[in-house]
Design a protein around this nucleic acid. Structure first.
Lengths: 257, 257
DNA sequence: TGGTATATTAGGTCTGACCGTTAGACCAGA
DNA sequence: TCTGGTCTAACGGTCAGACCTAATATACCA
């Protein structure tokens, strides 16, 4: 309850207390305003925002400020900016891509250990497989089969093999129809790929096992057997992670001698 | 295999194929250059980039362009920009916060269903608990205990309860010392909070169960019993998700009659 | 010694101009 | 009827320069 009369302290000053205040920049204000409108669904995906010069008139801000605001939204994946006549800022809903980009930055910036990536994958991917078995469509199956074929047809080319490997894992994630999980898996796969490609650990035996494991998981997903899907995927990613750990142990020791 | 002599089609035209080409903008070029340098560790965290006007001299670009590049890096969480003398763009490594922000955008933008959020949490959080039990420090324990106390002391205030609830879940995630998982959990918790706060589903019984479950998980983490941690957490989040599903079923049906 | 001007250095904003790209309309030659 | 050239208007992209505002270092004074 506030005192009845003016707040004063012993020195006669007002004792009004203020918290540290944020003074947002003009471009942030505009960006926040536009972001709210976009996220609240005021604009349908694909509709263009007003041209920069029009926004200048409406907001009484300078073009510099307007452009910075649009740039912010672009980086956040909320608009796609096209130049030229009939260009402009077109509303976009953020997707798996923007999430994958952020995760990639986090991984590189914090130099996340390969072990942590594999850990995270062990947490997520079996669950993806489970959901995929429940929610997969025929299209999802087609993508899985295509990736399986690519893996088999990769021959001795390591890059082709790894790429097809990623495609399969991403296909499983997409089949879960949970965009949170699939976005995460996309970036995880890419990061694991990058960390794995220069290690000589992928030999013929690993490939053979991989192909087999993928086929058996795919089968479970096809048959909508979520129990089997989660079990097989769990086994697959776990043993893959163990193999890498073993491999690193084997290759690290000689360096110490 | 390409034909031996000029590629032609039936109308005698060349059939050379070109993919759509990207023409990067000046500000993107600069942003990419700086980003590479930051991520490759050329600058230690906290070191200031050259002042804008200095970059103008070095790059021969205009200040507008330089500023846009810096703004891009700021949004991506790679620099923190301070105004005033001794201000500038200070190198920062992207952290959980930037990831949480992106995930929040994804959730709002795609209007991810509450069910999907809960699904994702079921995938991730037990694993977090497991890692937390292995890697927790005394500080982590202190945070967990503090959150537990706050929950108990929340009284009848719903907001306090939900906030303390979040704090506990986030504390578990942090204790896993896997920044990927903790970033995800931070935004996940916040989103679930937002989706839950206006539903009248949190009654005294739910609270009681929650407090109990948290304490038992905390105990497992304290004792570094990862098996128990994963089991108890799994049970907790699963039953919470089931309760919400039940609640929604109960409250939806009357609307149809 | 401790507070208070003042100068300095940084980012933030604005103005106005011009450049580059693109869609669309129109025209001319094969 | 195609094909390519040309023009125009509508966009975003870039630039140069000025001024405002915030934060700090530093000299100064009580």
């Amino acid at each position: 309850m506030p005192p009845a009369v003016p707040n004063t302290t012993r020195n006669g000053r007002s004792s009004i207390q203020l918290a540290p205040m944020e003074v947002p920049k003009a471009s942030d204000v505009l960006a926040n305003e536009l972001r709210e409108r976009i996220l609240s669904g005021d604009y349908v995906e694909g509709t263009p925002l007003p041209p920069e010069r029009e926004l200048v008139v409406q907001t009484k801000m300078s073009r510099t400020t307007v452009r910075e605001a649009l740039r912010i939204l672009e980086v956040q994946g909320l608009v796609r900016i096209k130049a030229g006549r009939a260009g402009g800022a077109f509303v976009q809903r953020p997707g798996e891509q923007s999430m994958a980009d952020t995760v990639a930055l986090l991984i590189r910036g914090r130099q996340i250990r390969l072990a942590a990536l594999l850990e995270t994958r062990e947490a997520i991917e079996p669950f993806c497989a489970q959901l995929a078995a429940r929610h997969r469509t025929d299209e999802d199956l087609a993508r899985l089969d295509a990736a399986n074929d690519d893996i088999a047809g990769a021959g001795d080319n390591l890059d082709d093999f790894l790429q097809a490997n990623i495609d399969w894992h991403v296909a499983v994630a997409s089949a879960s129809h949970n965009e949170l999980l699939s976005g995460l898996m996309i970036s995880l796969s890419r990061a694991i790929y990058a960390a794995t490609e220069n290690e000589g650990f992928i030999d013929d035996k690993v490939r053979e096992i991989t192909v087999k494991a993928h086929r058996s998981v795919t089968r479970a997903i096809r048959e909508k057997d979520s129990e089997a899907a989660v079990r097989r995927m769990s086994r697959h990613v776990h043993s893959y992670a163990e193999s890498i750990k073993d491999f690193e142990k084997r290759t690290d020791i000689p360096l110490d001698e």
